[in-house]
Design a binder for these strands. Structure first.
Lengths: 220, 220, 220, 220
DNA sequence: GTCTAAGCGAGACGGTACGTCGAGTCTTAAA
DNA sequence: TTTAAGACTCGACGTACCGTCTCGCTTAGAC
């Protein structure tokens, strides 16, 4: 994250004691520790502040509540996501799926992600924060993978920008949604075999869709 | 639900005042009302008991906590899911996706589903309850749709029972996961256009995968 | 105190678990202990509840705040005040002064009395509670002593009830006010010598006033 | 007050920016305003600093806490007390009682006086400060009134300095204590009628006591 | 005329207590 | 034995003040 201080940009005026930069890092790390040990529902602001060696008021000065804090704490995990060029679209998809699955194996992510999404169903601001802090971080991998596949000729260029965006969104929802569902709802392992099967399904789907409505109609 | 009383089978002995059957229904309805008005995180056991005109003790005698109660309350919503024969696999998929999306538009489902999944990441028993009360209800639609498609010849029969089961699981995770992600994480509408696109992707994927690894390799 | 439960009479309806009578006693004793150890300003509701082995909510269910609680706790000390017949008005006065001074030597009374009076300057309800719980307990000694003196012929009967009441009030304010001021404001000891001097002053004053405006005018 | 800056004498060294003299006055005035509006227990240092247009640091550089600040703020009120010669001891007493009662009608004095006395029961330094800032200011009126009465021949000279001092103290405690008790504990008005009655009692007491133990024994 | 040590405003900081709320249990009397 | 009622313990909440600190900026006397 470029700007770890969350709610208010740090220097509104120029007077007064400046906010401790170290505190931000300590708090977010403490939040992740608490998530691992206690899980979302048993995590408390007081506990986090104690772990971080910080007063509770310092937390509330920077984050308006538990959800916001946890989003920022978990978002940092997503900074580690990357997409090296594995040579083919198929390999890239398998890599990104495995990487995301590994992230979902981390207890702090498991317990926190669905929780903040649940909260966000009744909180517009939280939804925006999740989008910018987490979703966008994931989506850029899809964008990158798609561009590479287009450069390789594996996928056609889409000239209509709106359509291109919608396609990216769909691919993203399919990949992220399916992996999350497998890992957290079905509680089944995301292992190499499953990833290969899922990737194959997705590859067929992408290539068939790319051929498009004008392509060979799905045979019954 | 056949047995709405959840934790303890109703009549362990036979003496004493029997449990009110009406109470169960009232409690679950009150729970859904409270979910609509307050959302998961602001729903309280005391509030539910007050809405249901029931003592808190009565709640705790039947459910061990908020998560269990909400799972049962929301599970009843899934009883309305059904899959009439629409004539083709494609139409069946579109129907099931739209139906599930409609369910996710209900505020009680939006706020509760992800929340109980989040809770279940640290609670084995809750995970089982979600599986039997919710997931299995959804999955039978996939099983049914697949059988119909096989009967129609749209999809091949899979003789290996284990493999068949895995394929069903994958399809289920793709459909349910993608729709949930679209609706709750990306917060985008699941409209006819999107459903058509997604269904097309899935159809190509299924047919390609059905042709199998021995089928035509995905062209680059 | 006849009714240790303070704010609400115990049985408003007849259902539900009744309030613990033991808790009242434990809380008031804990309050006095805390006053002795910590003093008024460092006494906290949380500390009292911990000492009493009681939840904080139980305190707040019975008393609306620290002031009310402390008034009730200290009021019990005043139950020990009594006025045995010492044979003469002078002896009775000396006895009551010494007894009150002894009470004011107790740290819980020293620290609490002025504090609740200070609070009561902005709180009508608290003022009433102090009056009924503390002031009236003290004043009855004055009433009793005066009646005895009248029976002995040391003081004349006052036929006008209003005037009689005003005289009692004056005597009470003089005795209680002077002793409190000596003990807490001037911080001087209320010893036998001082008591004798003060009592003499008061005796002359009472007898002179009793002789009344029609009595011998104060000589210059 | 000669030296309004309380805790540290202003110029310990000689270099550096000197303390603002205006700040002291502004702070004490703000303190009195806050006492009137909020009362002792709701008055906060932060509020006072805001009212005075001063940083909290500036307060704490001059006073060690709320009690000290309030003592100084209220003490200034006592500067207005004076005792013009009314021609007789009786008139002087009535005057001083009425004047003191008027002071106790001011909300800032009502709420603050008992509060700081309560605090002082556990704080030696505060007790000294109250004595020098408030009590001594009151007591000099008694000393003055007594000297005048002696000059008039209304009261005898007391040669034993210690005894004289003790008598002054007693008179002071009787007057101040009785008035405070009437005004703040009994919450009854200190009106002309009451003052006359009280003064009469006191006059008889003083004259009887002045006649002394060797004087006519109080008749039964 | 600098130099410099203190005062000053602003406001973040680590704490402690607040008074409230919800969870889940327990104790009554009535059904 | 279940029920409604409600008191109970426990623990977290989010806020308010406390008194301290760290900033950058005066300000006035010493050099």
């Amino acid at each position: 994250m470029r700007n770890p201080s969350s709610d208010t940009s740090c220097p509104p005026g120029r007077t007064g004691r400046p906010r401790s930069a170290a505190a931000d890092a300590a708090i977010l790390a403490a939040t992740r520790d608490a998530l691992v040990e206690l899980g979302w529902s048993k995590l408390t602001m007081g506990d986090v502040s104690a772990r971080a060696g910080v007063a509770k008021t310092t937390l509330y000065r920077r984050w308006s509540g538990k959800s916001e804090l946890v989003v920022d704490a978990v978002a940092e995990l997503f900074d580690s996501l990357e997409l090296p060029d594995r040579g083919s679209l198929e390999a890239d998809i398998e890599y990104v799926v495995l990487q995301f699955a590994a992230l979902l194996r981390r207890p702090e992510a498991r317990t926190a992600l669905m929780a903040v999404v649940a909260e966000s169903t009744r909180d517009e601001a939280l939804r925006d924060r999740i989008r910018s802090a987490i979703v966008d971080r994931q989506k850029r991998l899809v964008v990158l993978g798609r561009e590479r596949a287009q450069a390789r000729g594996e996928l056609p260029y889409e000239e209509d920008a709106s359509l291109a965006s919608h396609t990216t969104d769909l691919i993203f929802d399919v990949i992220a949604g399916t992996v999350v569902h497998r890992a957290l709802v079905s509680s089944e392992p995301v292992d190499e075999l499953w990833v290969a099967t899922f990737t194959a399904l997705l590859m067929y789907g992408l290539q068939g869709s790319a051929a498009g409505p004008s392509g060979p109609a799905p045979a019954v």
